[in-house]
Amino acid sequence: MARMKFICDAERCIECNGCVTACKNEHDVPWGVNRRRVVTLNDGIVGAERSISVACMHCSDAPCKAVCPVNCFYTTDDGVVLHDKDLCIGCGYCFYACPFGAPQFPQAGAFGLRGKMDKCTFCAGGPEKDNTKGEIEKYGRNRLAEGKLPACAEMCSTKALLAGDGDVLSDIYRERVMRRGRGGDLWGHATAYGVKAATSQQPAPTQQKS
């Protein structure tokens, strides 16, 4: 098994928010916490509008894990980044470290008191016995233990959001790009990481005959 990953194909995302709703429903996520959200850039500009579904990206070298003062994060054998809510002190360091804004904090009481961190678990629960009351209440349902993929990706109507073993996702995406003949680069990568898109994606300049 390689590593569990999400990818979102911006050529297909129609901003329906089905993934957001599926996640909220599957895990009974409290009001004010969004483990997944859809971000739209160039909203309303014809031809330039793109939407992308964003949640925890389960980074291989997770910055949240690096900054946590109580070391409550751990990475499973399948590359899913999870945390122990019994240890979390709700300090918010992970929120500042995460480039995707994945860590969420429920309002735990009066005066904006911050609760323990909550984030996408790749539908893999947490450090409790699988699909017990304790796990479901703290982390949500454990679909991976049931042999299922995250609800957001399985619910996606256009299959813009894909989840699963990185190798399988690469194969699916490669075939998709070959068939449609464009969109080889995952849109947003250049925006997020400040690198130029591959030149192969740009239209070839026309040759001037002299």
Binding site: K65, V70, N71, C72, F73, Y74, T76, D77, D78, L82, H83, D84, D86, L87, A124, G125, G126, P127, E128, K129, D130, N131, N142, L144, A145
Partner: peptide
């Protein structure tokens, strides 16, 4: 080193 409790493998059920 993570201080989290040990987690079950997803196939140990």
């Amino acid at each position: 080193q993570s201080a989290a409790k040990p987690d079950d493998k997803p196939y140990q059920n």
